[in-house]
């Protein structure tokens, strides 16, 4: 499903460098990458999703290699084929929950009635339907995080990448969100890659790797 090999990346400022010899995620697998804050987990996620471009190495989704794509097609691939849950949720404050959920589909031209129906189903499951028309700026942190998780699943992505997806949630809500993410992976035989420093989350993953073991 996903394979990253010989990844080398250094920020232009030169302050931080990351080298990942190999990372492979199988279809239907939920992978947890554990590590302390500031270790470089978010940088790894950005490399795997093509937001950052490594100086060396490859990231491959099935037959598609990110390094062979142009900037434009790499963005299009990310928009249409990957599900992303950002640490800061990446929601636009002036949009409603509905508009934020449907934004990637709307901008990629892939908005259909099925997507809208699915959005409502996912929100229903996360007990967020009463907030459908509310501005995301009026929501609590936990509610915003659930909107971000819901958005990552709507377009049935090849893989979902989540950066601390439950950091703002309490116990019950954490389980609810993780159940949704892992069920989706199993049901569609895709991949889930979660980076977190929260040890309680380990039980949701098929495999857990320590971030420092990934690095060269």
């Amino acid at each position: 499903m996903l394979s990253a090999r010989d990844l080398h990346f250094r920020y232009a400022s030169g302050e931080f460098a990351l080298a990942i010899p190999e990372l492979i995620v199988k279809p239907g697998e939920a992978l947890g990458i554990m590590g302390p804050s500031g270790a470089g987990k978010t940088t790894l996620l950005k490399l795997l999703t093509g937001i950052l471009t490594p100086q060396r190495g490859t990231v491959q989704f099935g037959e598609t290699s990110l390094s062979t794509l142009t900037e434009t097609t790499r963005r299009e691939f990310r928009l249409r084929r990957l599900g992303l849950v950002f640490q800061d949720f990446a929601l636009l404050d002036y949009l409603s929950v509905e508009d934020n959920l449907l934004l990637p589909m709307r901008l990629s031209g892939g908005l259909t009635e099925d997507i809208q129906t699915k959005a409502q189903q996912v929100l229903e499951r996360l007990e967020m339907m009463p907030h459908w028309k509310r501005l995301t700026s009026d929501l609590s942190q936990g509610e915003r995080q659930r909107v971000a998780v819901a958005r990552s699943l709507l377009h049935e992505p090849l893989a979902v990448f989540a950066d601390e997806p439950t950091s703002s949630l309490d116990g019950a809500r954490k389980d609810e969100v993780m159940a949704l993410l892992t069920e989706d992976v199993k049901a569609r035989n895709t991949a889930l890659i979660v980076v977190t420093h929260d040890g309680e989350m380990q039980r949701w993953f098929d495999r857990v790797v320590d971030f420092k073991d990934l690095r060269a």
């Binding site: 434009t72 963005r75 928009l79 950002f86 636009l92 901008l107």
Partner: peptide, 15 residues
Amino acid sequence: REFATLEDIGVSRGT
């Protein structure tokens, strides 16, 4: 920051 967010999601520069 808003535009960077959209770029991270995958929105093209043209869009």
